[in-house]
Simulated assay, not measured.
Amino acid sequence: MSGFAAAIAAFAPRLPLAVAYSGGADSTALLRACAARWPGQVHAVHVHHGLQAAADDFESHCRSVCAALGVPLVVAHVQARHASGQSPEDAARRARYAAIAEVAARDWAQGGPRDVALAQHADDQVETMLLALSRGAGLPGLAAMPAQWERDGLRYHRPLLAVPGPDLRAWLAEQGVTWIEDPTNADAAFTRNRIRAQLLPTLARAFPSFRATFARSAGHAAQGQALLRELAETDLHALGVPPTIAGLRALSRARRANVLRHWLVSVHATAPSTAQLDELLDQLEACRTRGHDIRLKVGARFVRRRGDVLDCYNPALSDST
């Protein structure tokens, strides 16, 4: 049994199942394999990003394929243009998840799919880890993409994370199946495309098993991050929300950094940069008297001392907790 066939055989979502279908090779393989395994139980959702002239052709192709397979298709139109300071990839990703959630609420509300399958594979996982390394990411970045998670009331799955990309294309070729190529995949302006075209072939020559070993490393990072999250939740519960300065100062610097990052992300949806977090830790270390002030910008928010606790607030909204 091939790695792709084994991955589909091991995949156990709740039915009915939705497949995010772009028309490309990876999602084509996933959609066809799922439709063959669960006839009449698979839906497809195609997100029309509106970013290039070929987007209408992508939609037409997806409609034709789904009609031939007897798979119901919903097309969601979004405007995925990125804001200043936001990467195009991140803007498109956020737009896709928002569109899928809207489709689920509008079209699948009554007994429709609550599980969604995405077609990212082992090469995508390696690319994500290399991008994280290039940015100096910590454990959350090195953990790369999770195989399963929940968002907006939906359960998402990536059943192909152990399957090399070339294996998917080989399976499609054996089936005599065609797909569409997104022209932006060849654009060297995107870092991920340069990794795919230049680094992955080099890694394959130097380390033939790199996909499996990278996947193990991502799993170790994910396990370590889960433990850090559990510790942060325990510490934040003990410190209170907002956290007390005395309680924070009683922790080691590493543990203090862990709980502060968790507090800012989980309560205030703002992630401090390494420099910002180091500065906040330094200010806390120097905070030895009641009159010592703390004030630091973190994203669109500010962290400041308010009596015996740290206060995080958005100046535009004047909120704090």
Score class of each variant (00 low, 15 high):
Leu161Asn: 02
Pro164Val: 08
Pro164Trp: 04
Leu168Cys: 06
Leu172His: 05
Ala173Gly: 02
Ala173Leu: 08
Glu174Thr: 13
Gln175Val: 03
Gln175Met: 07
Val177Ala: 10
Val177Arg: 05
Val177Trp: 07
Thr178Val: 03
Thr178Asn: 09
Trp179Asp: 02
Ile180Asp: 04
Ile180Met: 14
Glu181Asn: 12
Glu181Thr: 15
Glu181His: 11
Asp182Ser: 07
Asp182Pro: 06
Asp182Arg: 08
Asp182Ile: 06
Pro183Lys: 04
Pro183Asp: 09
Thr184Pro: 00
Thr184Val: 12
Asn185Met: 09
Asn185Pro: 00
Asp187Leu: 06
Ala188Thr: 10
Ala189Ile: 07
Ala189Asn: 13
Thr191Pro: 02
Arg192Glu: 13
Arg194Pro: 05
Arg194Asn: 09
Ile195Glu: 11
Arg196Ala: 13
Gln198Met: 03
Leu200Glu: 12
Leu200Ile: 04
Pro201Ser: 11
Pro201Thr: 02
Pro201His: 07
Thr202Glu: 14
Leu203Asp: 11
Leu203Thr: 04
Leu203Pro: 03
Arg205Asn: 14
Arg205Ile: 10
Arg205Met: 12
Ala206Gly: 11
Phe207Leu: 15
Pro208Phe: 10
Pro208Lys: 06
Ser209Asp: 15
Phe210Ile: 02
Phe210Cys: 03
Phe210Ser: 01
Ala212Asn: 08
Ala212Val: 05
Phe214Val: 15
Phe214Pro: 01
Arg216Asn: 04
Ser217Gln: 14
Ala218Thr: 04
Gly219Ile: 01
Ala221Gln: 05
Gln223Leu: 10
Gln223Lys: 10
Gln223Ser: 12
Gly224Val: 00
Gln225Arg: 10
Ala226Ser: 15
Ala226Glu: 13
Ala226Met: 09
Ala226Arg: 15
Leu227Val: 09
Leu227Gln: 15
Leu228Trp: 01
Arg229Trp: 00
Arg229Tyr: 00
Arg229Asp: 09
Arg229Leu: 09
Glu230Trp: 07
Glu230His: 11
Leu231Ala: 10
Asp235Ile: 08
Asp235Asn: 10
Leu236Ser: 02
His237Ile: 06
Ala238Phe: 01
Gly240His: 12
Val241Tyr: 06
Val241Trp: 05
Val241Pro: 03
Thr244Arg: 12
Thr244Val: 07
Thr244Pro: 05
Ile245Lys: 03
Ala246Lys: 12
Ala246Arg: 14
Gly247Thr: 12
Gly247Ser: 11
Gly247Arg: 08
Leu248Lys: 05
Leu248Pro: 03
Leu248Trp: 00
Arg249Gln: 15
Arg249Val: 15
Arg249Asp: 07
Arg249Ile: 10
Arg253Tyr: 01
Ala254Lys: 12
Ala254Ile: 09
Arg256Cys: 08
Arg256Tyr: 01
Ala257Tyr: 05
Ala257Phe: 05
Leu260Glu: 04
Trp263Tyr: 15
Leu264Cys: 00
Leu264Glu: 02
Val267Asp: 07
Ala269Val: 13
Thr270Ile: 14
Pro272His: 06
Thr274Trp: 04
Thr274Asn: 05
Leu277Asn: 10
Leu277Trp: 13
Leu280Pro: 03
Asp282Arg: 08
Gln283Gly: 04
Leu284Gln: 07
Glu285Gly: 02
Glu285Phe: 00
Arg288Leu: 15
Arg288Lys: 08
Arg288Ile: 14
Thr289His: 13
Arg290Trp: 10
Arg290Asn: 08
Asp293Met: 03
Arg295Tyr: 05
Leu296Pro: 01
Leu296Val: 03
Leu296Thr: 01
Leu296Ala: 04
Lys297Tyr: 00
Lys297Ser: 14
Val298Gln: 06
Val298Cys: 13
